[in-house]
């Protein structure tokens, strides 16, 4: 019980903290979870984080919240998921509540605009850093098919503007087909 309580408190704290600093979209949560859950505490492996990120992205809703719920679930079951999710929602709620009271001043403030513009470049670096390591994990497995899927999904999304759900669904189907062909070929 005591150990549970400590885990729950840690989950609540780390999610409050991560959520309060995720400027620039949900993807920043992935490097944050990597730092605190994978590198600091070694609660699960990087490979698992990639699986969670994939699941969080393949289901509806905000990727950041889905990922916090999954990481919480992995560490402490359903209570962990509930605690993580609620603590991740709290900071935006409080900040927006405050901002909405004097939002005209907030929107037109030059210092805040400069702060955010600077953060944008930093956040870009965080995501590029993550992408390098994650893609290396996939490429190192030396499956030509899985490696080729990365640029294929990128082009489908970025260049061709194809719906995300469609891309993920098509990848799943392709993988099923691959296994089907391989098992039929095997004696």
């Amino acid at each position: 019980m005591r150990k549970n309580l400590r885990t729950w408190l840690w989950l609540a704290g780390v999610n409050l903290f991560i959520s309060a600093f995720t400027f620039g979209g949900g993807y920043v949560v992935v490097p944050m979870v990597r730092r605190y859950f994978v590198e600091r505490r070694q609660l699960f492996k990087e490979e698992e984080l990639m699986g969670m990120a994939a699941v969080a992205q393949s289901t509806p809703g905000a990727i950041a919240i889905n990922l916090s719920a999954l990481a919480g679930y992995r560490v402490a079951g359903t209570p962990g998921a509930v605690i993580s999710c609620l603590s991740a929602l709290l900071p935006p709620l409080v900040v927006l509540g405050l901002v909405s009271m004097f939002y005209a001043a907030f929107v037109s403030n030059h210092v805040i605009a400069a702060l955010l513009k600077g953060m944008q470049a930093g956040v870009a670096a965080l995501i590029v850093d993550l992408v390098i390591d994650m893609c290396a994990l996939i490429v190192n497995r030396r499956s030509r098919f899985m490696t080729a899927l990365i640029p294929a999904a990128f082009i489908a999304n970025f260049v061709l503007n194809i719906n995300v759900a469609l891309i993920l669904g098509a990848s799943c189907l392709l993988c099923l087909l691959m296994v089907f062909i391989q098992t039929r070929k095997a004696p």
Binding site: G24, G25, Y27, V30, M50, G51, A53, A54, V55, Q57, S58, K117, Q120, A121, V123, A124, I127, V128, L130, V131, M134, C135, I138, S143, M146, T147, L149, I150, P151, A152, A153, F154, I155, A156, N157, F158, V164, I167, L168, S171, C172, L174, C175, L176, M178, V179
Partner: peptide, 27 residues
């Protein structure tokens, strides 16, 4: 298992796409 692997690869591709979008916006 291969479905999960496929989702991992595809979702990496999508994260790359998000990264490029943010980079262009920042630069």
């Amino acid at each position: 298992n291969s479905m999960l692997e496929g989702l991992k690869s595809a979702s990496q591709g999508l994260i790359v796409s998000a990264a490029v979008t943010i980079l262009l916006l920042a630069f």
